[in-house]
C-alpha cells in the first residue's frame, strides 16, 4: 500500500497546484508577499537562536514588522477575495486603504522600538 500513499501524496500535491493556479493574480501577489514576510521572520528566528536575544527590542521589532505585515496582508486577502461572501459589499480599494494605513502605523511603531 506504500505505492498508493505515495501516489496519493503526489495526486494531492498535483490537485493542490492546479487548484492554486486558478486563483486570481492579485491574490497570488498577496500570497507571495506573505511568504516573503514569513521567510524574513524565520531567518531572524534562526539568527536569534544562534547568537541569543541580545538586543531584544531590536529582535522583537524586526520579527514583529515581518509578522505584522504578514497578518495585515492576510487580512487584505480575506477582504479582497471575491469568493468570500462576508466581504461582498466591501470595496477592495477600501480594504487596500486600510491595509496601507495599518502598515504605516505598524512601521512607525517598529521604527520607534527598533532602537
Amino acid at each position: 500500500m506504500a505505492k498508493s500513499s505515495s501516489t496519493d501524496a503526489v495526486t494531492l500535491i498535483r490537485s493542490l497546484r492546479s487548484a492554486y493556479a486558478a486563483t486570481p493574480t492579485n491574490l497570488k501577489i498577496i500570497d507571495l508577499y506573505v511568504v516573503f514576510a514569513i521567510a524574513t521572520a524565520l531567518i531572524q528566528v534562526v539568527y536569534m537562536g544562534i547568537v541569543g536575544s541580545f538586543p531584544f527590542n531590536s529582535f522583537l521589532s524586526g520579527l514583529l514588522s515581518c509578522v505584522g505585515t504578514a497578518v495585515l496582508a492576510v487580512c487584505l486577502r480575506i477582504q479582497v477575495n471575491k469568493e468570500n461572501k462576508e466581504f461582498k459589499d466591501l470595496a477592495p480599494e477600501r480594504a487596500f486603504a486600510d491595509f496601507v494605513l495599518c502598515n504605516l502605523v505598524l512601521h512607525l511603531v517598529i521604527m520607534n522600538f527598533l532602537g
Binding site: 514576510a37 524574513t40 531572524q44 531590536s58 521589532s61 524586526g62 514588522s65 515581518c66 505585515t69 527598533l114
Partner: peptide, 16 residues
Amino acid sequence: AAFPYYGASFSTMAGF
C-alpha cells in the same frame, strides 16, 4: 549584532 533585524525591518518596508 542587530544588523539583521534592522535589515529585516527596512526590507519589510521596501517590500510593502
